[in-house]
């Protein structure tokens, strides 16, 4: 048994092991918790849109012998008639390594990909010229400054496209909160939907910004202001200033899919607003729950070896708020 196993790997050498590693990783986020092992848990339904969008490897991860998912019903409803989008969801990937269309960038570990930008049509961020140069410099020489690596909560829309599943809760109450909680880095957003205004002054900057929402028909519209300049959209160091303003639209299409679109504007960095879009699909893993995610505790190569001062970064002159 042992010999056959290793022959599988070493015989087909690279491809075999690459596929194995990739498969194992996809399965990670789909597998049910161990407490189910004793039971006859049905296999997870095929996941649409999971994982990266590069190299044609994406889409239709259909394992052998699985029952097809039943057709999705209509959008579920709360007692007050608003869409009930509670449950666990997975964001379609494609923008995690690079939010924009890109060629392969080996030394920063980014493969060629289409990204998730739908406007402009070329799929690239409409950077002002100085900003494009800065992005190249950041990605090649300043990886250390990525805020995720230092356990700061993510910005918007990066947080929505996070690699793990996320939970949506809609507690009762006049605020109509839509609460989103990610396993990844235990990020969360608390979005009131009662049309309340932003009250934070412009001088206050938060990593995740300040989300204020309202319903337009079945679409949850979220206006996000007051982000700081410290977060990137992806691994390729695509960045923004603290003037960034994002308007998101979460439109449930059926009970298992939400169409997501975000319009991003930042007159300091871009020549025009731009849009990203992807699908968010219900995580069908039986009894899936978010687990605790300790952000890099105990991983010394990130928290200790790669601190900003140890890399020569002047922490007194970090990007302006």
């Amino acid at each position: 048994m042992r010999n056959r196993f290793f022959t599988y790997f070493t015989g087909s050498a690279f491809m075999g092991s690459m596929l194995a590693a990739a498969a194992a990783f996809t399965v990670f986020w789909m597998s049910s918790p161990p407490e189910l092992r004793a039971q006859d848990a049905p296999p997870a339904a095929p996941q649409g849109g999971g994982g990266g969008g590069r190299g044609g490897g994406k889409g239709g991860a259909k394992g052998g012998g699985r029952a097809p998912a039943p057709p999705a019903g209509p959008v579920r409803r709360l007692a007050n008639g608003k869409p009930n989008i509670q449950g666990y969801w997975k964001a379609g990937g494609g923008g995690l390594f690079s939010i924009e269309a890109t060629d392969a960038r080996k030394q920063i570990g980014v493969n060629a990909g289409k990204g998730i930008i739908t406007d402009p049509a070329d799929g690239k961020i409409p950077y002002q010229p100085w900003a494009r140069e800065k992005e190249l410099d950041l990605s090649e020489n300043h990886t250390i400054e990525e805020s995720d690596a230092h356990c700061y909560t993510s910005g918007i829309p990066h947080m929505v496209e996070a690699q793990s599943s996320f939970q949506i809760l809609q507690p009762e109450g006049s605020a109509g909160y839509v609460v989103m909680i990610w396993e990844y880095m235990h990020n969360y957003r608390i979005i009131p939907t009662d049309n309340r205004p932003h009250v934070l002054p412009a001088s206050v900057h938060l990593f995740a910004g300040d989300p204020k929402g309202h319903w337009e028909g079945d679409t949850l519209v979220v206006d996000d202001t007051n982000q700081n300049a410290r977060t990137w959209y992806d691994i390729a160091a695509n960045f923004h200033s603290d003037q960034i303003h994002v308007v998101e639209r979460f439109t449930p299409a059926d009970e298992n899919r939400i169409a997501y679109e975000a319009t991003i504007e930042d007159p300091k960095v871009y020549t025009q607003p731009w849009k990203v879009a992807f699908n968010i699909t219900r995580d069908m893993t039986p009894n899936y729950r978010n687990m605790e995610f300790s952000c890099w505790e105990g991983e010394h190569d990130v928290t200790e070896k790669y601190t900003l001062p140890s890399q020569g970064v002047d922490t007194k002159n970090l990007p302006k708020k």
Binding site: T26, M30, P43, G51, G52, G64, K106, Q163, E299, Y306
Partner: peptide
């Protein structure tokens, strides 16, 4: 076998650039 066949996509890793970069 199902595990090998399942999800042969380029699954994203729950890592920031730093940790990811370390493999390459």
């Amino acid at each position: 076998l199902t595990l090998w066949a399942a999800g042969i996509s380029f699954a994203a890793v729950a890592l920031p650039a730093l940790a990811h970069h370390s493999f390459a």
